[in-house]
Design a protein around this nucleic acid. Structure first.
Lengths: 186, 186
DNA sequence: ATGAAATGGAACAGTGTTGTATCATAAACA
DNA sequence: TGTTTATGATACAACACTGTTCCATTTCAT
């Protein structure tokens, strides 16, 4: 009961192509995606029964990557603020995945499973911020929902400067952390 | 040579409805927009010859609003940083317009006039930031392109918390300014 | 009140996308 | 090497949206 080598190759090519096309323009055609993957449109429909199924699989794939990358943070972080620093550092290379997930609400009407994992990420980030506030590592002047949004926005900005201005993921992560902690003044 | 009252009413209703629908989901149907405006689809096509024409008119409308709102800043600002504070304060109530303009690249293939004005705004913001850097009001540690993106991201975040969490425009502007200048630390 | 103009409904063709079915060909497996 | 299985090309129906035309009705202007 081993899956044919052609299937896994096609699946990977399709998910990769879909990631690239869909985060660029969310209403990319399945023909475009298949073509960009070097795969026939028929094969796409054979592996992913519908457009939603493809997007759903892609979203779950991206969420899985995020989970995998952020898992070790809990062990390594010296403090709550350090966890946020590591978060920028580890997630910034995955900005394509992150950017797609930011559009998932728009792409996927509402898939219960995807939405559930998405909310879980959100909640964990909020908990991290609240913890940092209690530890007096970050100011309580800004509300938690604002700070969650700020971090997400900094990821988005990091993706933007990487793709449009040739910054490296490390540079982007450092700028994001600086922006988050100190801002721009003085 | 006065335009009929019905025409201006329909135009305003259509632009308003288009603003609301398109910044929510960029591929909203013209039927949806017309219906949401309480106007027949035929009328929409009579006033705006094509989908692109409507989006183009809407983009120019939003750009005009932005210009009108930001014009007095040059006179009023006490310093470069104060100009940025006023920018947040004055533009934050227009986040719907701002949010649509952020998607204009995606909505409008590439209209030369719209793109030109858009670039002008971008350039002016970059010049303001560079000036603030020369005045030692903000740090040179973060690149200008990053800071331009940061400000745009803060506008986006401001729109988000207004619509999704019931914050007022004033609150959003203040949080944005705090985030920009000080960040979240301590 | 009357003429002029805008409106909205319906029906239409054109187009592009989704999703399905068929079949000859190519590649993987044993 | 032979068998099984995935592939891709083509053709197809269903559907939604765009953009146009026509016409009866409503609303504005004077």
């Amino acid at each position: 009961m081993v899956t044919d080598a052609r299937i896994v190759r096609s699946q990977e090519a399709l998910l990769s192509a879909a990631l690239e096309k869909l985060h660029h323009s969310p209403d990319a055609t399945l023909s475009e995606i298949a073509q960009h993957a070097g795969v026939g449109r028929t094969t796409l429909y054979r592996l992913f029964p519908s457009r939603d199924a493809l997007i759903r699989a892609l979203a779950l794939h991206c969420l899985g990557r995020m989970d995998a990358v952020t898992a070790p943070i809990t062990q390594q972080a010296q403090s709550a603020l350090d966890a946020i620093r590591l978060l920028f550092q580890y997630v910034m290379p995955l900005t394509r995945e992150f950017a797609l997930l930011m559009r998932v609400d728009q792409l996927l009407a509402d898939d219960p499973e995807v939405v559930a994992i998405h909310r879980k990420h959100h909640r964990e980030l909020a908990e991290l911020i609240d913890y940092a506030k209690r530890q007096k590592e970050i100011s309580a002047a800004l509300s938690t929902v604002w700070l969650v949004g700020l971090i997400e926005g900094l990821f988005h900005l990091g993706w933007s400067v990487q793709t449009e201005h040739g910054y490296s993921a490390e540079e982007a992560a450092e700028m994001a952390y600086t922006s988050f902690t100190q801002g721009a003044q003085r």
